[in-house]
Design a protein around this nucleic acid. Structure first.
Lengths: 206, 206
DNA sequence: TAGATTGTTAATCGATTAACAATC
DNA sequence: TAGATTGTTAATCGATTAACAATC
């Protein structure tokens, strides 16, 4: 049943739908419609229905979607009806912030391993984790069967770290370093880069 | 001379081109081609040429693009041939990391003001800035004529903070809170949300 | 000059939207 | 039942790619 047939641009919107449905649930709502959901996030009702239709029929004519059911379904589709252990490589200020971030837990993720190559931080305790030596990345990640990682090292080391993560069996990398990284087919990569986003916006300013 | 006529999806790629050109420059290159640039970032040569053609003619047949010239031009197009002062609202771990981030400076941005509503941090020094009281946001931001802001408060307060930023004259908001925010026409908003990116990737994992 | 690469046009491909029968 | 809203089809719209004359 080919995942391949769903356009990636559709997949990319699902987490936003999930986030918004959870928000609606927190607000005490039990049902919503493609229209109601779309209004929240400035996406057309037609697009939401079309996107969801790639995966099944989750709504009812006349009444819309049961929020808790649609959340369950999206969590299953996105494979976050489980908790993914994550490795974090690099403990500067940003690594610290991520290690201490409380938001992962209820959304399918948790930090499990932290690495750095700086002897003065290796062995120290960050957010309850002992920082491990980067040199032992491969064995430790394999041992813990970690498939998801975040890179918060500087640009010059990001590709090298990514290569080692891939060797360790990591299949999804969230890269915070401001540089494009090459990964083999079958390994996912996404970027978080505030400067890219800021420059995108300043285009529209005078 | 309508900025309107350039598709936003094209604009969104320009910062990536700029980033990559700077990288090439650091590596000692003086020229590149649509092909060479494209290979770095997995974008087709045709697309790069098409994108750039919206703004002018920056290359030479036979030889490609002079990197320093194209950097200059892109910086001008993106309005980052100047330094934008930024306000940062919310000083948790993430706010701390952003306040201390060295990477903004050479790319057109600098943190100028930091706000929080927590009495125990107001007045304290973070990365050389005195944390100001959120209650004085409007007047202080106006006084400093700040047009760009980053939100690192929790989800429940993000919309309220955004509203106040807009009132203060801010025209571009980078929101780190995991919630969609409504802003008026003419105000730019972009999101940074690791969970969205992670869930996008886990779709492809088993 | 010959080779390389641009900027641009036209063709292709893909994504979004509008419309509506089905039905809760 | 009447009103609302789904899932889906077909039409529209927009983005990407291929191809090539121009020319450095």
């Amino acid at each position: 049943m080919g995942k391949r047939i769903v356009p990636d641009i559709v997949v990319a919107r699902l987490p936003l739908y999930l986030q918004t449905l959870k928000q609606l649930q927190r607000e005490g709502e039990y049902t919503t419609s493609s229209n109601g959901l779309g209004k929240r996030i400035d996406i057309s009702a037609a697009q939401i229905r079309k996107d969801l239709s790639h995966f099944g029929e989750f709504g009812k004519q006349g009444t819309g979607y049961a929020i808790s059911y649609l959340i369950e379904q999206l969590e299953e589709i996105l494979n976050v009806n489980q908790v993914w252990d994550m490795a974090l490589v690099g403990v500067g200020f940003l690594g610290h912030a991520i290690a201490n971030f409380r938001g992962f837990n209820s959304h399918g993720f948790q930090v499990k391993l932290i690495f750095d190559n700086n002897p003065t931080v290796i062995g120290s305790n960050i957010a309850g984790f002992i920082v491990q030596d980067s040199n032992k990345m491969e064995e430790i990640i394999q041992e813990h069967n970690v498939k998801v990682a975040m890179i918060t090292v500087d640009s010059d080391h990001a590709q090298e770290v990514a290569d080692r993560l891939v060797k360790s069996g990591v299949k999804a990398i969230l890269n915070y370093a401001p540089v494009t990284i090459k990964v083999p087919e079958g390994v996912q990569i996404q970027y978080i880069d505030p400067i890219i986003e800021l420059q995108h916006m300043t285009y529209y300013l005078d």
